[in-house]
Amino acid sequence: MNEHTAGRHASRGLNRRGFLVTAGAAAAGAALATTLPERAGAAAGPFRVPIEDVRHTRTWMAWPDSTAIWGGKLSGVQADIALIARTIAQYEPVVLCANSGSAAKARLMCGPTVTVIGSIPVDDCWMRDTGPVFRTDGHGGLDAVGLNFNGWGGKQTHARDALVAERIASYAGVPFTYADLVGEGGAIEQDGAGTLMATRSSLVNRNRNPGMSERRLEAAMCEAYGASKVIWFDGVYGQDITDDHVDATSRFLAPGEALVQMPPSTDTDAYARDARRQYSTLSAATTATGRPIDTMRLQGPDYNRIRSTDRDFLASFANFYLCNGAVISGQFGDRRADEAARATLARLYPDRVVEQLNIDRLGTGGGGIHCVTQQQPAV
């Protein structure tokens, strides 16, 4: 979902579904005081979360149906979710989790190429954050890790979403464990070769991991992802529901290669400053093996030229999703920036089709295409 960052208007307050907070916060607030689930014991073998450009078995998604969360925006968001699902299904299988009462509508809107299941109930559509993080061992093994989703620090109701990761792992028939931290998939980027990046604002935060030191949190992240190094960005605290997820600003392309979405030079808000700091930090960083990181710029759109005027809108090209044979990205109506982003993604992924989608309704919730997808890697 993510979710989150770069180049927003300076006047913006709560982003990333800021309008949703009051709908579910009261019901979710008790989650802040709960303890992590009992661990089932780590799976044997050197399991690691691969980089996202590996081949996938399928993509997992979720169908939103709550007017308490989305209000009058729900039908438009559903249309965007269906568009994303149908587009990905041209390239690889898509399994979409829906509540039993809305599964028929999801099937109608998504069409026959998308598999809709009603056996895994959901609260919302942000599968990147609620779904399992799949790991491989390089020898045909696959397992999954849950990040103990708590509604982005108790900001939204999540009784169903908190169980999605474990239930998907069970459906997929793979071993499952819970990580020793609370977080979301959009909060952590991995290069598949031992290096992670994340924002402190999202994870070193008492609304997820109270009393947990950065060093202990780093160790838990590395254990869960099969990594050995974390590159930290400060991030932005308390300005959006995710507390500034990394996957809307900075992404790994390969071990030793990354990109950062840069704001227009005239943008000076907290997210613009954060993006520039992320670029500076990443450009000076090295991977787990000591390799310098070649950091590329992906120019973000001008918020004065995009179609949406919603104050919570996220216009992140960096929040793209890689599926088998394609790059699925947003386009936002700043024609020059949209075309430049398409050209950049085509250059970075020359063997993939670049699909740019109008996801403006989903963007009003402060998320993008990467936020609503979760890949299951092939083994």
Rank of each mutant, 00 (worst) to 15 (best):
S75T: 15
G29S: 12
A144L: 06
W70A: 03
I81M: 14
A378T: 00
V54N: 03
E3W: 10
V116I: 14
E166W: 13
A6T: 10
L259E: 00
Q299M: 08
I69E: 08
F176Y: 12
G325Q: 06
L322I: 15
V327K: 08
K155T: 01
P350S: 11
T289R: 12
N304Y: 08
L348Y: 04
N99P: 14
E92Y: 05
R12I: 12
R276C: 02
L314W: 03
G141S: 13
C371R: 02
L322W: 01
R39Y: 00
A254L: 11
R291H: 10
T195M: 09
E355H: 13
Q376A: 03
Q239D: 09
A258F: 03
Y279Q: 13
L253N: 06
G118K: 02
I359A: 07
A103T: 04
A172P: 09
R12H: 04
M109D: 15
V260W: 01
A62T: 13
I306S: 04
C97Q: 03
M262G: 02
I84P: 01
Q78R: 12
Y91V: 01
I188R: 01
T373G: 00
G76N: 13
T130V: 15
G226S: 13
V94T: 07
V260S: 07
S11V: 10
D129E: 11
G366S: 09
G226E: 07
A179P: 10
A103L: 10
S228C: 15
N2E: 06
G365Q: 08
M1G: 04
V246P: 03
Q376V: 05
A25M: 13
D137C: 09
F317T: 01
R39H: 00
A165V: 09
Q261P: 09
G226V: 05
G333W: 06
G325E: 11
V145K: 02
T289I: 06
G154F: 05
E189R: 03
M61T: 13
G235H: 14
N324S: 09
A82F: 01
M197K: 13
N209S: 11
A31V: 04
F252Q: 02
V54T: 12
G290M: 05
R276I: 08
A343D: 12
S329A: 14
A165C: 06
